[in-house]
Structure formats: C-alpha cells, structure tokens
Design a protein around this nucleic acid. Structure first.
Lengths: 194, 194
DNA sequence: TGCATTTGTCAACGGCTGTTGGCATAAGCA
DNA sequence: TGCTTATGCCAACAGCCGTTGACAAATGCA
C-alpha cells in the first residue's frame, strides 16, 4: 500500500471539503503567510494534525485552494466592438458572482510576498488571458495587449476587493463597465501604437 | 530624562541610517511579514537588538521605512490635454527614478496582507492623489476619478514591478506613455459617464 | 586621568509556526 | 462477535519570530 492518505469514504470526503473551504476563506482574507494551519483547523472545527494528514503540507493545501478557472468567453465570436465590455463584465462575474470561487483573491492576496502564488498568477495570465486576446489581435502583439488588459484588471481588483479604496468600492457595476470597458477595448483591439 | 533613544552623535546617525536603508530594501523586496528584524540586522551588519534600540519596534521601523511623497505636479497649471501624459510620466519617475525612494513598493508589497500598510496606502490616495485630481475636475467626481486613475496605476505597478509579468516588464517608457496616458486622461478629465 | 554616557554584543524569554508520531475511538467487514 | 482499517485528538519537536535585559567596549567630557 503506497497511499498514506485516507480512503475516500463519505466521511473523509466531507471533512476534506470542510478543510479546503476553510482554507480558501482564510487564504483569501489573510494571504498565505497570514493564515496558519491552526487557524484553518479551528475554522473547520478539527485538529491541526488532520489538515496535514489530508493535504500533505501547507504548500499543497494552498495549491489546492488557489485554483483559478476564469472561463473567459471566446472573444472571436462576439461583436468586435463589445470586447472591452465583455471582458469587464466577466471580470465582475469572476470577482463578485457566486459561481467562481475566491481563487483570484487568494492568488492576488499572496502574490506580492509568495513566489509560488506569483508564479501561479503569471500562469493564469499566460494560459488563460493571453490566448483569449491572441484570438482577436495580432498574435505578435498579444502579449503586450494582454499585459495592458491585466494591469487594468488587477489594479481594479486590488483597489476594489483587497485594498478596499472607498471610491472604488462605491462604483456601481454600470459605472465600472462604462469607464473601464473602453480602456480594455482599446488595449485589446485598439489602433496600434507606433 | 524621558528619552530612551540614543543621542544623535555622528556615529549613531550613521548606523541608524544603515538600518533604515536595509529595512527599506528588504521590506520592498519581501514585504512586512517576509522581512524579519534579524534579516534587517544582518543586512546592516549589526545585532538584531540594535534595530529595536534605534526604532522601538518592528511596526515603528516599518512606519519609518514606508514613507511616500509622490510630489505630484499641480495639474492646474499644465496643458489640460496633457494631464494623462503628465501623470504617467510622474508614475515612471516615482517607480524607476533615483530620487523617489522605494516607499511605494514597500506599501504595495505589504498592503495585501498588512492592515497598517493598507491604511497608509489609502492615505496616500486620499492625501496626495485625490487632491491633485480635485483641482482639475468637478470636486464631486474627484473621488471616483482619482479611484479610477489609481486602479490603473496600482495595477501597472503590480504587473511591472512586483509580479514582474514579462510582457509588462518589456514595455518601453514610450509604449507605456502612449498606451496608458490616454486612459488616465479620460479617467481624470474625460467626459462624464451618465 | 577618571567618570558617565553611548554604542554594541550575547543569551535568553515566551509565543507562534509547520510538522510528526503515538494513542484513542469509531466504522466497516468477516 | 472479532478484527482491520479509517478517522480523530493530543503532546511534542525543532525552528523562527519580536523583544528584553545584562554586560562589555568605546567614546566624550571633567
């Protein structure tokens, strides 16, 4: 028997999920270093040792919690003039909608002081954002354009959800769409800079 | 004698400065939690206890290191069409020029997981960014506009200097000015959204 | 020269961290 | 019913953390 992990009966699956849910919550709120295994265990009403038994280490727990699937729409099939609006609406869905988990918050919260989180966030950019832009813009420019789009979106997320800058928190969805949408439109498919 | 701190002879001033310089470097690189007092002491070639003697605690050391003075120009006196360009050029100066210290990097690196740093960053917004915008836009809108400007600038800083997203690192100053300048121009003084 | 103050080193405290191994239950199967 | 396995708690380890106090060397002033 090479497996050290618990078998997958109904019980163990439930506690495993309970631990993961608590971990996502605390990682999203306090970041990697700020959320201790003991905190996670307390929130899951369980012993700290169990956290290690179910996930082999804190790093592995973090890796399981910080899963991001942006599910960006295929921009090629939508109205070319609505690309910016589509992106910003999807952004709001990812950060405020119930379907997407707190994966992005977890990554962004920790990426400034944890190299693994930073690398994973760069992966999200390279594997999920950039390809979508490359499908509607000159592939040679896709990196630059996707980088600009990301800078605006990550900055908005920083100000609104992590830093909680009051005027940015106060923005309505419509205001965000009307102000940031055109920016993303220009970054994604606007006229080239010389 | 109510003072517990060392007197200000030439010697003590030099070590005090040495400690502060090491602290700025490490806080900017690794954030508040990631930079320990022992690390700072080692970088300053000094005993950890001295760090506490010169600055009374790690919190106070951080407060002294995370000092930010953006020195934003008075936008009222410049060409109204060049506001966006002026802002983004000043941004590059603050982050890459030799004059401004690493204060912004220190704050941004720690603001995601340290409430004191977050509060101080919000203060920079309220006391330095917002008033400058309020001088050239409808004061009732200044908060919203300054918030949008900050979202783009903090996001750019995140991607370029902290996360080091390759395509954003590769951008030349001219490319940044030409792409981000118009965004800031519109956020700062562009036509109102309905 | 003698003394008081400053500058610095060393060792240690208490607390928190991730992680481990041992031991008690509880559950499932023969 | 008995036995194996899974699930869980407890105590402890080693390591790092910020911080403290005692003591040594250096410095400056009389």
């Amino acid at each position: 028997m090479t497996e050290n992990q618990p078998k997958k009966t109904g019980k163990s699956d439930r506690t495993r999920a309970k631990i993961l849910e608590a971990a996502k919550l605390l990682f999203a709120e306090h970041g990697y270093e700020g959320a201790s295994i003991r905190d996670v265990a307390a929130h899951a009403s369980i012993d700290p040792a169990m956290v290690i038994r179910y996930f082999r280490s804190k790093d592995e727990l973090f890796a399981r919690a910080a899963v991001v699937d942006l599910q960006l729409p295929a921009l090629r099939v939508i109205d070319r003039n609505a690309i910016g609006e589509t992106l910003i609406r999807r952004f709001l869905e990812v950060w405020e909608g119930p379907a997407s988990g707190p994966g992005m918050a977890i990554l962004l919260r920790s990426a400034t002081s944890n190299e693994f989180a930073a690398e994973k966030l760069r992966d999200v950019f390279g594997n999920q954002v950039r390809p979508v832009i490359a499908a509607v813009a000159d592939p040679a420019d896709a990196g630059r354009r996707a980088g600009l789009v990301s800078s605006q979106l990550l900055g908005l997320a920083m100000c609104r959800y992590l830093l909680r800058l009051p005027p940015v928190v106060a923005l309505s969805h419509d205001e965000i769409v009307q102000n940031v949408g055109p920016t993303l439109q220009r970054y994604a498919v606007g006229e080239d800079a010389p």
